[in-house]
Computed example of a mutant assay.
Amino acid sequence: MTPNVTAHHCVNLPFRIDNFIRGEKWIFGDAWCRANLFMLSVNRSASIAFMTAVAVDRYFKVVHPHHKINHISTKQAAGVACFIWGVVISLRIPLLANNLLSVENNVSLCRSFSNYEKTPLGIHLHYAVFILEFFVPLILLVFCSVRIACILHSRQMNKDKRGQRAIRTVLVIVGVFVLCFFPSIGTGLTALYFKKLGDKYCEGYNLTSQLFSMSIAFTYLNSAMDPVIYCFSSSVFRNYLKKAVNQTGLMKLQMSRRESMPSGSD
Rank of each mutant, 00 (worst) to 15 (best):
Y193P: 00
Q210W: 08
A217W: 08
K196P: 11
L192S: 10
Y193F: 14
Y201I: 01
S213Y: 15
L211Y: 06
Y201L: 06
S213V: 10
L189I: 13
N206P: 02
S209R: 01
Y201N: 07
K196D: 12
K200N: 15
S215Y: 15
K200H: 14
S213R: 13
S213T: 14
L207F: 12
L197E: 03
N206L: 06
Y201V: 00
L197F: 01
L197I: 09
M214I: 15
A191C: 02
K195N: 06
K196H: 14
D199I: 07
M214V: 13
K200S: 15
S213I: 13
N206E: 08
L211V: 04
F212Q: 06
L207Y: 05
K195L: 07
D199Q: 10
T208C: 06
Y205A: 01
I216H: 14
G198M: 01
S215W: 15
L207W: 08
A191K: 06
Q210M: 02
T190V: 12
S209V: 04
I216G: 10
F194M: 07
K195C: 00
G198W: 02
L192G: 05
Y205P: 00
Y201S: 04
K200Y: 14
T190Y: 14
N206K: 03
T208I: 02
A217I: 11
T190S: 09
M214R: 10
T187A: 12
A191V: 00
L207T: 09
K200T: 15
K195P: 03
D199R: 05
N206R: 10
D199C: 02
L211K: 08
I216N: 14
T190G: 02
Y205I: 00
L211I: 10
K196T: 07
Q210K: 00
Y201F: 14
K200A: 15
G186D: 01
G204A: 05
L192H: 14
Y193V: 01
S209I: 05
E203T: 13
S215L: 12
T187Y: 15
G198V: 03
F194L: 09
T190C: 09
E203G: 13
E203Y: 06
Q210F: 04
K200P: 11
K196Y: 12
A217E: 03
A217P: 07
Q210Y: 05
S215F: 11
L189M: 10
A217H: 08
S213K: 15
Y205F: 03
Q210C: 04
G198S: 00
M214Y: 09
S209T: 11
I216Y: 15
N206I: 03
S213M: 15
G186S: 10
T208D: 02
T208R: 01
I216E: 15
Y193A: 01
S209P: 08
N206F: 00
L197N: 05
G188T: 00
A217R: 14
T208Q: 13
G188K: 02
E203I: 07
D199F: 04
D199P: 02
T187K: 09
S215H: 09
A217V: 15
L211D: 06
G186R: 14
A217D: 09
A191L: 01
